[in-house]
Write a protein that binds this DNA or RNA. Sequence first.
DNA 1: GGTGAATGTGGACACTGTTCACATTCAGTG
DNA 2: CACTGAATGTGAACAGTGTCCACATTCACC
Lengths: 216, 216
Amino acid sequence: MTSPVRAYHHGDLRHALIGEGLQLARTGGPAAVTLREATRAVGVSPNAAYRHFADRDALVRAVAREAQLALAAAITSRVSATPAGLSPAEAAIERLRRVGLAYIDFARTERGWFETAFFTQDTHANDGIVTLDDEIVAPFRLLMDTLDAMVDAGALAPDRRPYAEWACWSAVHGFADIAVHGPVRWQPASVIDALAASVVESAITGVRGTPDAPGS
Amino acid sequence: MTSPVRAYHHGDLRHALIGEGLQLARTGGPAAVTLREATRAVGVSPNAAYRHFADRDALVRAVAREAQLALAAAITSRVSATPAGLSPAEAAIERLRRVGLAYIDFARTERGWFETAFFTQDTHANDGIVTLDDEIVAPFRLLMDTLDAMVDAGALAPDRRPYAEWACWSAVHGFADIAVHGPVRWQPASVIDALAASVVESAITGVRGTPDAPGS
DNA sequence: GGTGAATGTGGACACTGTTCACATTCAGTG
DNA sequence: CACTGAATGTGAACAGTGTCCACATTCACC
C-alpha cells in the first residue's frame, strides 16, 4: 500500500513491533520478546520503541493481548464446528467440551503464545480500582456465554450456574499448564489426549453435578 | 560450629546460595533469583557460584525443588489437622478437600515460592527417556495417596480412580494460577476464599461423579 | 611437607533495558 | 509557499545481567 521503504519514519512501527513480538513469543515465550530483538528485526534503532511503548513490559502486554485473541479464535473455531443433529442440551454440553479441548490444544500447539497470553507482571497495580470486567479476557467471555447457553438449553441447573465458570476455567487452564510445564510434558501425544479428555469430562461432571449419560 | 568468618572457602556455599535464592524467590518469584544478587548477599564473587551450579538455571531449579517441598509441607500440615470423629469415607473426602485448599492458600500466601515451584525452562529435554516417576514432585505424590485412601475408605468408586489425580490437580492448580495471576487477583480475600471453596467442591464432585450429600 | 583437586577471585565480553541529547520528518498555520 | 512545533527515529552512554578465561588460594591426602 504505502511506499515500500521509508528512510526515517516507519509509518506503523507500533504494529510492526507487536507483530515481531508475536513471532518471537511464538517460539520463545514471553521471555523471548525483547525490545532490542524486535527493533532489530524491524530494522530500527532500539530506542524507537520508546515512542510507542512506555516499557518493555508494555510491549509484552500488547503482544499478550494478541495472543489472547488468538486463543479465543481457536476456541471459537472449534465451537463453531459443533455437528448439527444433537438435542439442544446435548449440543450445549458438546460446546462446553469443545471450549475446554480447544483451550488445551492451543496451549500444546502454541505453547509460546499460551505462556505469553497469561504472562502478567504486577505493575499497574493500584491505578484505581480494577473491576473484574476490565480485565476479562476474550477466552473467558466465551466460556461465560457457553455456560449461560447451557442453562438456557436445560443442560445445567440454574442453581449450579454460579461460579461454574471458575471451576471450568480452573480445570482446563490447570491441565493446560501441567501439560505444557508439568510432568505430563514428556508423555506421548496420545496419552496427553486421553488425559485431557478425562479432565474435561470430569470438569463437566463437577459443574453439572452428575455424570453425563454414556452413549455415542 | 565452624569458624564464623572464612577468608576464602565458605564451607557450604551451595546451600547458602540456595537459601539466599529462596529468600529472593519468596518476594520476587523465579526472575528475582539472580546469580549476582545471590552471591553478593552471601559475600562471594559471582563466579564462585559456577563451582556449585552449572548454570543460573541450575540454581533456580534447586530453589524450585525447595519451594516444592515447602508446598508439600503446607499440604501435609493442613491434612494432618483433619478433625477426628468423621466416618472413614467422610474423613477421606475431607482430606482431599484439605489438599486442595492448602494448595490454593500456599499459592496465595507464598506467591513467589509458588511461581518458582512450577518454573521450568525446557533445558535437559532429551537426556534420555524421562519417566513420569522421575519428575513427580512431592505435592503430587500426596494427592495420589489421598485419592488411593479414598478408594480404600469407599469414598471413591474404584472405576473412577484412574486419572482422578489429573482432574484434581488440574482444577486446584488452575485456580491457584488464576488467583495469583488472573483476573481474580484483585478481588477481596473473602471472595477468593469463596471461589476457592467452590472450585474444590466442584473438583471433588467431578471426580466422584456425584455431589456430596449436604450437611455438616 | 608437598602435590593435586577443590574452591574462590578479577577481568573481560556480549547482551539486555533505559535515559539523554540530538536529528529528521510530518502536519498544519501564517 | 515558508516556518514552526510536534511526532518520530538515532547515537552514545550507563547499569545490570550471565558467562568464560586465566589465575589465586586453600583443603585433603600421600
